[in-house]
Simulated assay, not measured.
Amino acid sequence: MVNKFYEKMNIPENCNVGSTIFKKLFYENGTLTSSDKDIFTNDIEKITWKYSFKEENLNIKRFKNEELDYEEIALIEVLLFKEARYKKICEIVQKTIPYPLLIVLMHEDKILLNAAYKRINKVDNSKNTIDNFAYSKWINIHNLKDNEVSFMNSIDIRNFSFINMYKFYQSFVEKLNLLNASSITGDFEALKDRDIGEVNKLNNQIEEINSEIEKFKIDINKEQHFNKRMDINIKIKKLEFKKNDIIAKLNS
């Protein structure tokens, strides 16, 4: 199923690696808790280093300065037994493998994409600092929504920036951010010409509001007093109105 995604990326054959990454790597080089090890044992079936993007195989210049090291980008595929703890899995993989990573999680007929910007840790050069994580929603490859079809048609790497490896990576992350915003608006194409900074800002505001609403919904289920339940309901309604205003800005 994931081959459809890779076909859309149009990755040259000389970028193929296809090497299994054994869980032992994470046990030995990561700082895994017993809970983390439980996730790797019970949730992950297989981890594969699928592709490597670098100057030698894509003719894209490396990018390195005091803050950033984008000499090589690895695409890592993670086949899951269970999907629930995918965020923790991505965090562990991103923190353990020093390269800039694109992660493709697979579970049944679905894939989920992850990226994370990394900076050089000035205290310990052997480690990276991760600024933020970007996740798609789960995508059913055999039942794509309209915005997902548009996203899949946009990820041909020949259309990414070839200025340097950092810009190349940034191209994918921007597509991922547009996909996330279009999951709200329903229209990927309409967002393509928008300022990506503005799209990200509005999308982040919506995500924050969604988190607040979820917390209030948990509170209302616990609350026994009618008046307090009404107060929480009013707060939820206000947040929903605010969210709709932001969605309108995304659509405008």
Rank of each mutant, 00 (worst) to 15 (best):
N3K: 15
F5Y: 15
E7Y: 01
I11M: 11
P12N: 07
N14V: 06
N16I: 12
V17Y: 04
G18P: 02
G18I: 06
I21C: 11
I21Q: 07
K23A: 02
K23M: 01
L25P: 04
N29G: 13
G30K: 04
T31W: 02
S34W: 00
D36N: 09
D38F: 10
D38E: 12
F40S: 14
N42E: 10
N42R: 10
D43A: 14
D43P: 07
E45M: 08
I47P: 05
T48D: 11
W49F: 10
Y51C: 03
Y51T: 04
S52I: 00
F53P: 04
K54F: 01
K54Y: 08
I60T: 08
K64T: 06
K64P: 02
K64G: 00
N65P: 06
E66H: 14
L75M: 14
L75R: 07
I76R: 02
E77H: 06
V78I: 15
V78W: 05
E83S: 14
E83P: 04
K87T: 03
K88G: 00
C90R: 06
C90A: 15
I92Q: 04
V93N: 03
Q94F: 02
K95H: 13
T96G: 11
I97F: 08
I97L: 15
Y99A: 04
I103A: 11
V104T: 12
E108S: 09
L112K: 14
L112C: 12
N114H: 12
N114F: 12
A115K: 07
A115E: 08
Y117I: 10
K118A: 04
N121G: 07
N121C: 02
K122Y: 00
N125I: 03
N125A: 08
T129F: 10
D131A: 13
D131E: 12
N132T: 01
N132E: 08
F133R: 03
S136R: 05
K145C: 12
D146F: 05
E148I: 04
R158M: 05
N159R: 03
F162Y: 14
N164G: 03
Y166D: 00
K167D: 03
F168R: 01
Q170G: 02
Q170L: 14
F172I: 03
F172P: 07
E174S: 08
I184Y: 04
D187R: 10
D187Y: 03
F188S: 08
E189I: 09
A190V: 00
K192A: 06
I196R: 06
I196C: 10
L202Y: 11
N203H: 06
N204D: 09
Q205V: 00
Q205H: 08
E207A: 12
N210D: 14
S211K: 12
N221Q: 07
K222W: 05
Q224R: 12
N227M: 13
K228C: 03
K228W: 13
M230D: 11
I236H: 09
F241P: 00
K242I: 01
K242L: 11
D245N: 15
I246K: 07
I247Y: 04
N251R: 10
N251K: 15
N251S: 12
